[in-house]
Amino acid sequence: MSKRRELEEICQRVPEIVGRYTKLMLHVNDQVLIERTAQHEKWGQQRHNYGDWLMILGEEFGEVCEAMQRNKGWGKKTDAVDLHKELVQLAAVASAIAEQVIEERGLTHDKT
């Protein structure tokens, strides 16, 4: 049974408070997958050295920081605004890096 299916079943049989958090995890991970798919459609399969990945990840992290500053009233008009969107994008970039690591190690999703 897949982990996702297992979590969906947990949502059905646990107290509402636990189910709510599990549903929230599934929802956020769905959003990351949607963003990851959009990145793949826009850029194709990306494979970079880790230094370049670090720069891409750093840029996304910077946008998260900008959005957090804006939420405190510290930001500039040009700064990122939507913290949730920026966090999802950051997670999607991290997922792309993880995909490359798995590929480089010759692993499949069954072996991870």
Rank of each mutant, 00 (worst) to 15 (best):
G73S: 10
K77N: 07
E103H: 09
P15H: 03
G19K: 08
R105P: 02
K3G: 04
V81P: 00
G106F: 07
T37C: 12
R70Y: 01
G44I: 14
G58A: 10
Y21D: 15
H27A: 15
Q45L: 08
L107M: 15
W53G: 11
A94G: 09
P15M: 03
L107A: 13
G58S: 12
V101N: 10
G106D: 13
S2C: 05
E16P: 01
I34E: 15
P15K: 04
L24F: 11
R36G: 02
D52K: 12
G19M: 08
V18D: 08
E6S: 01
E59S: 01
Q31C: 06
K77F: 06
K3E: 15
E6R: 01
R70S: 12
D52Y: 12
M25S: 12
H40C: 09
R47M: 14
C65D: 04
L26N: 10
L87M: 14
E41A: 07
K3A: 10
A92G: 02
A91H: 01
D52G: 04
N49D: 15
K77P: 11
I102S: 08
L57P: 00
L107Q: 13
D52A: 13
A67W: 03
G58Q: 11
G51K: 11
V64M: 06
N49P: 08
P15C: 05
Q100E: 14
K111G: 02
Q12E: 13
R105A: 14
V18P: 01
V18F: 10
I10G: 00
D79L: 03
H27S: 08
R13Q: 04
L33K: 12
W53C: 08
V18S: 06
Q31T: 01
K72N: 09
E66L: 02
K72C: 04
H40T: 09
Q100I: 03
Y50T: 09
I102M: 15
K72P: 00
I56E: 11
L107D: 11
T112Q: 14
V93R: 02
C11I: 02
M68L: 12
F61C: 07
G58F: 02
E63A: 03
M25K: 13
R36D: 06
K23N: 14
N71S: 15
E41N: 07
G58T: 04
K42F: 03
A92S: 11
G19R: 06
L26T: 11
